[in-house]
C-alpha cells in the first residue's frame, strides 16, 4: 500500500492540526477495515496523508445523557454489540453491529468508519436510520449535529469535507416498550455482505394501538432512508394481518421506485416483502391472536 504520509493522533485537537498540516489529500483511518482493503487493490492513497484516529481515546466507548446514547465514532462493532447501555436503550443497534463481518472484523471496524465509508450495504445503517440517530461532526474545533441519513449523497459518497470528523453518534434512547426486529439476509452466516437488511421499531400502547413505527430496508437503496408514509400506515392503528401485508407491499414497492428496476430487483422486491411480513408478524404476534 502506497501512501504519502502516515500520522497517528491521540486527540481530536491533534487531528485538526494534522489536517491543517497535511499537504494534499487526507484519508482518515479508523479501524482500517476499508482503508487497508482499498489500499491493497490499487494505489488510491498514494497522494494521501493517512491519519489514524483509532488511538483517540475520547472517540471510544458509549456514554449516556438523560435521553441520548453517545457512541464514540471509533467504538468497534464488537464493543457496541456487547455494550450494556446499547443493549438496554438501542438493542437493534447491538444486533446490527453483531451482524457485521466476522469477530475479527468487528474487533477493528468502527461505527464511525462504517458511516463515513458510506457503503449502501453497511449492516448498521438501517438500524441507525430507524433509531433516528444523529451525528456530531467536528470541523476545526466547531461541532455540528446532523441527522445520520443526511450525510449520504450516493453509494460510497458523503457530503463530509476532508476536515470533517464524525466524533459521536447520538442515539435517542428507546423506551423499554419499543419492540424491535433486525433481519440480515446474506449469502452465508458470517463474513457476508448484506444482500438486504430490514430494521423495524414498533411501539404500541396498552390497547395495541401503534404509537411509533419505523421500518426501513438496508443494502437496497443508494443511501439509508426513512419513510414517513410507511410509518403513517400503522401509527394510530391496532395492526391487522391485512395491515402487515399492506406495509410489506408498500415498503417493497419502494425498491423499484427509488433504486429503479435492476437485475437485483427481481430478487430484492419479493424478499423485502416476505421478510417485512415476517418481521411485523413477529412483532405483532400478541396483537394478531
Amino acid at each position: 500500500m502506497k501512501i504519502r504520509n502516515f500520522i497517528q493522533v491521540k486527540t481530536v485537537e491533534a487531528f485538526h492540526e494534522a489536517v491543517k498540516a497535511a499537504n494534499g489529500s487526507i484519508a482518515i483511518l479508523a479501524g482500517g477495515t476499508d482503508v487497508l482493503v482499498n489500499g491493497r487493490e490499487d494505489d488510491v492513497y498514494k497522494d494521501c496523508t493517512v491519519i489514524d484516529i483509532f488511538p483517540i481515546e475520547e472517540l471510544h466507548g458509549v456514554r449516556e445523557t438523560e435521553n441520548m446514547l453517545l457512541i464514540g465514532a471509533c467504538t468497534t462493532h464488537e464493543a457496541i454489540s456487547h455494550d450494556p447501555l446499547v443493549k438496554q436503550y438501542a438493542p437493534i443497534l447491538a444486533e446490527a453491529s453483531g451482524a457485521v463481518g466476522s469477530l475479527q472484523t468487528r474487533n477493528r471496524a468502527t461505527i464511525g468508519g462504517n458511516l463515513a465509508n458510506a457503503s449502501p450495504a453497511a449492516d448498521t445503517m438501517s438500524a441507525l436510520a430507524v433509531l433516528h440517530a444523529e451525528l456530531v461532526i467536528e470541523r476545526d474545533g466547531e461541532a455540528r449535529v446532523e441527522p445520520m441519513t443526511a450525510i449520504f449523497t450516493k453509494p460510497y459518497k458523503t457530503n463530509l469535507a476532508p476536515n470533517d470528523l464524525i466524533t459521536t453518534i447520538r442515539v435517542p434512547k428507546l423506551s423499554p416498550n419499543v419492540r424491535y426486529d433486525y433481519i440480515k439476509v446474506g449469502r452465508r452466516k458470517v463474513l457476508s455482505i448484506s444482500r438486504m437488511t430490514v430494521a423495524t421499531l414498533l411501539e404500541m400502547d396498552d390497547e395495541g394501538v401503534v404509537t411509533r413505527f419505523d421500518m426501513t430496508v438496508g443494502a437496497t437503496f443508494p443511501r439509508p432512508m426513512l419513510f414517513p408514509d410507511i410509518s403513517a400506515m400503522l401509527v394510530g392503528k391496532r395492526p391487522t394481518e391485512q395491515d402487515i401485508l399492506d406495509v410489506a407491499k408498500a415498503l417493497s414497492d419502494k425498491i423499484p421506485e427509488i433504486a429503479g428496476i435492476r437485475k437485483s430487483t427481481v430478487y430484492k422486491q419479493p424478499v423485502c416483502r416476505n421478510i417485512s411480513e415476517r418481521s411485523l408478524r413477529k412483532l405483532c404476534a400478541d396483537i394478531l391472536k
Partner: peptide
Amino acid sequence: FNNYLLPTAMD
C-alpha cells in the same frame, strides 16, 4: 475471497 464466497466454519 471477498466476492468468491466459501462456506465458513459457521456455515
